[in-house]
Design a protein around this nucleic acid. Structure first.
Lengths: 147, 147
DNA sequence: CATTATAGCTTGCATTATGCAAGCTATATA
DNA sequence: TATATAGCTTGCATAATGCAAGCTATAATG
């Protein structure tokens, strides 16, 4: 079974099957946080994705309507990759990942990033807190409490 | 290079390296949404994780302080897996994934799940909207606008 | 007490995805 | 004309997963 074969119709699983590989979200991060748009710019990220994997990830993201590939305005060799509305819909997930990673990675980040993360924390939804309290107390969102 | 080797100290990458495999988040989903706590309960999920992979994922999540393994109160064969505060910190990410998956998966979900997702959408942060608008306009969070 | 079932873990092999290196085509630049 | 760049493709080694089987300790059943 391939990693992206449909294993269930749980929405969390659906999301994982589309963008849960080790690289797709890093490409989306590069677009959202750093404004990258071209193959070369993605290639230059500090995680050192290889050309073969990048080609595969970009084509997959385009195939699933998460980004579009447009011809570059002046350079015919190049293309511009931009987020669709579906891709923009992943911003809350990226913010949540950034917040968690910043909180728990021993290597602390710069001032600018920390300020941004403080805003994410400050705007955390009441629903998130509610769910955390339920689970902390031994319950769950759709299940009955156990203890 | 292993998938979990440190490739950078970007917080998004950090999060991916800890829980970005195809299975860890499904275990966390089972805890948060369905109140599962034991090996057997995780094994029974509709995605059909195998025992070998489940063992590996649980031990990894415990190693990283995302969940704890406690002896079962009455059954000495069994253990209870519960989220730590660090694990609870992933709730916003799970909610974001659930919201996106429900919105874009053709197979629609039940009424109860949809109502929940409506609440996630309703409580989406002002920051998320702001970032979406910036990116829609060709800019990015930490970069300069391009067009 | 003997038998059977269950919880969790381990192993072995096939398949899939990624890491890495190299090279290829078309276009741009000097 | 020569060289550099953008993006893509291929081949091979390694890592992770899918799948099947079996193993140990404990629980439940007669």
């Amino acid at each position: 079974m391939k990693r992206t074969d449909t294993k269930s119709h749980c929405p969390v699983n659906f999301t994982l099957e589309l963008i849960g590989d080790p690289w797709s979200l890093l490409v989306l991060r590069d677009i959202v946080f750093f404004g990258k748009q071209t193959f070369k710019e993605f290639l230059d990220s500090s995680e050192r994705i290889t050309t073969s994997v990048l080609t595969s990830r970009l084509s997959n993201l385009e195939k699933h309507g998460i980004l579009t590939k447009q011809p570059h305005a002046t350079d015919l060799r190049s293309s511009l990759y931009r987020l669709t509305e579906k891709g923009l819909g992943l911003v809350p997930m990226l913010l949540a990942m950034m917040e968690w990673g910043t909180t728990y990675d021993a290597k602390s980040a710069g001032r600018r990033k920390k300020d941004f993360v403080e805003r994410i924390k400050a705007e955390q939804s009441a629903l998130s807190f509610e769910v955390q309290n339920i689970v902390r107390a031994g319950g769950s969102v759709f299940g009955e409490p156990r203890q």
